[in-house]
Design a protein around this nucleic acid. Structure first.
Lengths: 349, 349
DNA sequence: GGAAGTGATAAAAACGTTACGCAAAATATG
DNA sequence: CATATTTTGCGTAACGTTTTTATCACTTCC
């Protein structure tokens, strides 16, 4: 049932009364085989549409030509763009990808990684789940020689290639934009403090405040432990903020889900954007322009992140000698200013 | 480098001074092996965390425990939900999935399918590209015994299991809703006539008009040959409609991309929705409520479609005797009425 | 007490490749 | 012309499984 054209090297060998080894070498264009024989073999192979069985090849060569991807969920503009970038490269280099989802669960993440190694992938591309603070499960695999490249949500504890958006700068510029637009009390609804992007973005946010001479107020920062997976996380954050004495006049959000959920909640509460509350957030949605109001966003180059990550991973996999110099690439974000962060109008505050 | 725990049956055999065959049989709980030996073997295997090498197994058994998915693009709410559904089942049944994208190109579709067979997938789940009118490439594979299940965009020419949303009814109800809301001249911007969903939805649309005693007007139907992949497709359709003598007062769109692009264009042209033009379309976006105005949508059960499709595919793959009775499941859509199709106000028309 | 049966294990072949080590033929060298 | 060298091809083992067939030591039976 396997391959549906199912002609093997053996078939070619018997048909041409050659040995399997000769055919194999002829097909791989070995110098040990005469041009004449090579021609006969390749022509026959061509004619009968011979395809080497990738599974036999894998078994023999000890690689699977497949790589594992671990993301929180595929149902997310950012991650699907990343995967798009990964596939664009992987496919052309003869790798296929196995996608797994953590749904922001540490347990699922560990399980997925285990499954991927059972599947004997040649390497792993991973963006950690919000629940993950301990990376022992990855560390031990990495030590045993499994190539790993981190993207988006990375860890300091494992020394390998990493690709991220320039979260610090993205957050910095975004916050600065809000400040320049006249907002004074900027809240920050963000993801779990476990993950790197949360820290990086928080730092960018804090830096912008500092530079503007505004004191950082911990009460203005709200964490969603599952990155907004559950709507109540965002709701609670919002309610806390709205109940404050000095209610914020702008919210800066991280992650697609948190950003859009915040928008939905503000609308539902009939809080006018941006008059009562400005909104700016990380998001890769193509619908930003069509939202009410058009949403100011910080866009991450998802496709490029994926492309870089897979290229780095393949370079590790295919490198002859072990790599010792590792790189962390930070790709620039883009700030799209739309109506949800329009300059503050003169009004009694 | 393969598996990183890399203990094989052979290792167990030598360690316990048994033969490989005995170990293999003991692990598969064969009656030929004594309980005592079985226990020794399984305990040793457990302790040393033995995992059978899936590649060797595949080679021997002639299956790959992987299935191929072909969709137009992963970067689309509907398809990512479908894939989510597929993965949820596939993973638990020991299959992994290889995702490929056609980007609405016939050529890429054929290429992807070829690659998937080279990868010797055990079966294929496919939603045809908008360019595809000829399915010979699939037909021949299917004849040779490759299990295929179609979803979303299906074909009559191949007799196998299929899963779709109930497009006819979805379109029928949607159009009926527009009619009930007082709209008289309902245009329809849809995808390529090549694909099944276009016909099914057109029929639903036409039926609703007929039932309301409104004549079907071919000029009100505009096709986007690549399902709105290129923004100009939609723009041209819109311009044609707006230039008509009897300009439509509502647009009914198919597919996520066409729906959202239409919304964006209407906004850009400052055409008030729904006052000047109502809008209702197929879309799985979670942001419908947050759009301007909140967008009336017909939602397809993407996750369920994926789940059904993979279940059917696995049933074909694992069935002992060839299947002759095939089924086409149509899963109900859901109509979400929001502001973009509010009832017509009394006004001079 | 030898044939036949049974239970437990081992050996060998196979899946489709690749690669190492040889052997035979062709060619070069002195 | 004998010997070395290269060219070209073949045989075989190996990757880690599963499966078919063989082996061996006991029982059991008439």
């Amino acid at each position: 049932m396997m391959n549906f054209e199912a002609i093997t090297i053996k078939d070619i060998a018997t048909a041409l009364s050659l040995s399997v080894s000769t055919v194999s070498k002829a097909l791989s264009d070995s110098h040990e085989i005469s041009e004449k024989t090579k021609k006969i073999v390749t022509e026959y192979a061509e004619k009968h549409n011979y395809r080497p069985n990738p599974i036999a090849k894998s078994l023999k060569q000890g690689n699977s030509k497949s790589i594992g991807i671990v993301v929180s969920t595929i149902d997310n503009q950012f991650f699907s763009q990343v995967i798009n970038g990964i596939e664009s490269v992987a496919y052309s280099k003869g790798y296929n990808v196995i996608i797994t989802q953590t749904h922001e669960s540490f347990e699922l993440e560990a399980l997925n990684i285990k499954h991927l190694t059972y599947r004997s992938v040649d390497g792993i591309l991973i963006s950690l789940s919000t629940e993950t603070s301990d990376v022992e499960h990855l560390k031990s695999l990495h030590k045993k020689g499994l190539p790993i490249v981190f993207f988006d949500r990375i860890t300091d504890e494992i020394d390998t290639h990493k690709v991220i958006a320039d979260n610090f700068n993205g957050a910095f510029e975004g916050t600065q934009h809000l400040l320049n637009s006249g907002y004074k009390r900027i809240a920050h609804i963000t993801s779990s403090p476990n993950i790197s992007i949360t820290r990086e973005r928080l730092n960018g946010y804090a830096k912008a405040l500092e530079q503007a001479g505004i004191e950082f107020n911990e009460d203005y920062v709200k964490y969603c432990m599952h990155g907004g997976r559950d709507i109540d996380e965002v709701k609670n954050a919002m309610n806390d903020l709205l109940a404050m004495d000095k209610r914020p006049d702008a919210i800066f959000t991280t992650s697609d889900r948190i950003t859009t959920t915040t928008l939905l909640l503000l609308q539902k509460m009939k809080i006018r954007i941006p008059d009562e509350m400005a909104l700016l957030g990380f998001s890769n949605t193509q619908l930003a322009d069509a939202l009410n109001p058009p949403l100011s966003t910080i866009y991450q180059p998802g496709f490029e992140i994926g492309k870089n990550a897979i290229e780095m991973l393949i370079s590790i996999i295919e490198s002859k000698n072990p790599i010792t110099e590792f790189e962390t690439r930070a790709l620039p974000t883009q700030l799209f200013i739309r109506d949800s962060s329009s300059p503050v109008k003169k009004r009694s505050s």
